[in-house]
Amino acid sequence: MQDRTNPPNPGLDGDDKEIVVVTKPVWQRLLANPTAVISVLCLMVLVLGSVFANAVAGSDPLRINPSIRFKPPSFEFPFGTDNLGRDMFKIVLHGGKTSLLVGAVVTIISMTVATVLGLLAGYYRRVDMFLMRFVDGLMSFPAIVLATAMTGYLGPSVGTVVTSLSIVLIAPSLRVVRGQVLVVRELQMIEAARAVGVPTMRIFTKYILPAVSSPILVQASFIFSAAILSEAALSFIGLGIGSEDISWGNALTESRNYVSRAPWIVMFPGLALMLAILALNLLGDALRDVLDPKLARRR
């Protein structure tokens, strides 16, 4: 029977020590998973759209053109124009660049730090005590509030957003990595490696890290979506990337004054944001199903 005193929290329970024989490479199994394929396609459209924004929609997204204010979506302006006569299609595509880039950088930084600290915490019990109390404190506290306070001290800019989000998003990943390491370090292969005198550093890189890489990958896609969402929320309240840049969250800041007059200004940046988050969440679920069938969620 499942232990119902814990929430279904994949990766934290140390009950799966079976060896799963992998026959096909991961990418082949991912290709066989429709959810994964659809979400990767969605992400590719968003990434390519923003990378080639100049070619697809044209350059200079912030140019003001008062003669075409509040135009509803049409063939010429697929997403309409805003209160300053800016083409929303351009804004959404160019805004994606910042949103996705900030998300990617935050994911890389926070996952790297979380992996290193998670390995240490899982392996050395003394580090664990201290680190996990800290993580408990960070986890329960709303990340946005902390990031808001940080922006106050450091001033709104892309750098601040990346720094503050990287710090606050370390905690959840650190917990996942540590939980996995706690399971893996008890495996016989680690004991054997230690017995024959394999240096600790090598045990980390050759034995533990590969064993915990799947949950790290799954977690990374969730962190990516959390980072994009948090950047958008921060930029929306005016404490994010600053007004010289555009991102999806930023594009929504002013639009909220025109909800009744021009709902399309609100619609499209939000839809792009939601699509990115949705695709990343689904990709995370699919990765979990593929990489770790034992943890797959109930259908």
């Binding site: 969402l229 958008a232 929320a233 969250g249 929504l252 709902p263 939000g270 939601m274 949705l278």
Partner: peptide
């Protein structure tokens, strides 16, 4: 629920305003 988990709440708030208030 899949959609609900992915919706940014501040954007959803604007949509709610458009539908129920405006």
């Amino acid at each position: 629920t899949v959609l609900g988990i992915s919706v940014p709440e501040f954007w959803f708030a604007l949509i709610l305003v458009f539908v129920f208030a405006v």
